[in-house]
Simulated assay, not measured.
Amino acid sequence: MRQNYKRRLNEIEKQRRIAVAEQIRKKEAARQEQLRQQEEFTKDIINYSLWQSESEVDNMLLSYKKDSDTIKALKAQVRFRKNVLHQIPSDKFKFNFSKKGKDFTVNELTANLKELVTQAIVADDAIQKHILVGKKVRHRFIKDGQSEWYIGKVISQVFACICCLTNTFNLSFKYL
């Protein structure tokens, strides 16, 4: 009986270890998939650039000739804000691309993106601060013909001259 008990105990422990290892493997696979998607969304944003004001959205949309290209750019902006910046909007449906199976038009996507852009600038002690302030970023430089990545943290924003650029600003980085 003792041998049976020890054998069963060892078998249960072995099954428990296998189950825990499988859970760890699944979590790691999910994390890797999330990182892969974030990298893909970041590559899209590198192509389209991050639009940070309503006027910039309008100007960038004028540069696209086809509606399909415009929709791709708008979707890239929204996906990046949702999945990489983890922006929290007042209405979670601003991240949607369709309603009841019907795709949004360019105007509807533009309106949603403009609202997200406006909400990205939050009031903080009577000054406005962009949601990127305080976030860690990877920044790529080309040095001696070689591409190098640096990890940094956005420490502040510097507003541009209002007479030249409406509602635009630059962010300053601190490299770690």
Rank of each mutant, 00 (worst) to 15 (best):
K75R: 15
D58M: 07
H86R: 12
S49W: 08
Q52I: 09
D67L: 03
D69A: 14
H86P: 01
L74G: 08
E33V: 00
I46R: 15
E56D: 08
A73R: 12
K72C: 00
V78L: 06
S49K: 14
S68Y: 13
F80C: 04
E54G: 09
W51L: 02
T42K: 14
E56G: 06
L35W: 03
D69V: 08
Y64V: 04
I71D: 01
H86Y: 09
Q77A: 03
W51I: 05
W51A: 03
V78N: 06
R81H: 12
A29F: 01
A30H: 04
K66G: 03
L61D: 05
K65M: 04
R81E: 03
I46Y: 10
Q38M: 05
A76R: 11
E39L: 01
T70R: 15
F41L: 01
R36S: 05
L74T: 13
D69Q: 15
A73L: 05
Q37R: 12
D44I: 02
E39R: 11
V57Y: 06
L74W: 11
K82V: 09
Q34H: 04
Q34M: 02
S68L: 02
E33D: 02
Q32E: 05
V84N: 13
D44C: 01
K72N: 14
N59V: 06
I46Q: 13
E40M: 04
A30K: 11
Q52E: 06
V57A: 03
H86F: 04
Q34V: 07
Q32W: 02
T42W: 05
R36I: 06
M60D: 04
M60P: 01
F80Y: 15
L85N: 10
D58Q: 14
S68H: 12
Y48R: 11
Q77G: 08
Q38H: 08
K65T: 10
E39Y: 02
D44V: 04
N47P: 00
Y64C: 01
K66H: 11
Q38E: 07
N83L: 05
K82S: 09
K27Y: 00
A73P: 01
A76I: 14
D69H: 15
S53P: 00
V84H: 12
S63P: 00
R81F: 07
L74Y: 14
Q52F: 01
L85W: 09
W51V: 03
Q77L: 03
Q52T: 11
V57K: 10
E56Y: 11
S53F: 00
I46V: 10
D44N: 12
K43D: 03
F41T: 07
Q52S: 07
E33R: 09
V84A: 09
V84S: 08
K27T: 02
R79Q: 15
D44F: 03
K65L: 06
Q87M: 15
I88K: 15
L85A: 06
Q34N: 08
Q77V: 09
H86I: 04
R31Q: 00
D44M: 08
R81P: 00
K72Q: 14
R36M: 02
M60Q: 10
Q32Y: 01
I71Y: 12
S53L: 00
I88H: 14
K66L: 09
Q38Y: 05
Q32H: 04
S49Q: 15
E56Q: 15
S55R: 11
I45W: 06
L74D: 02
E54Q: 13
K72T: 15
L74P: 01
K66E: 14
S49P: 01
R81M: 12
K43R: 14
F80D: 03
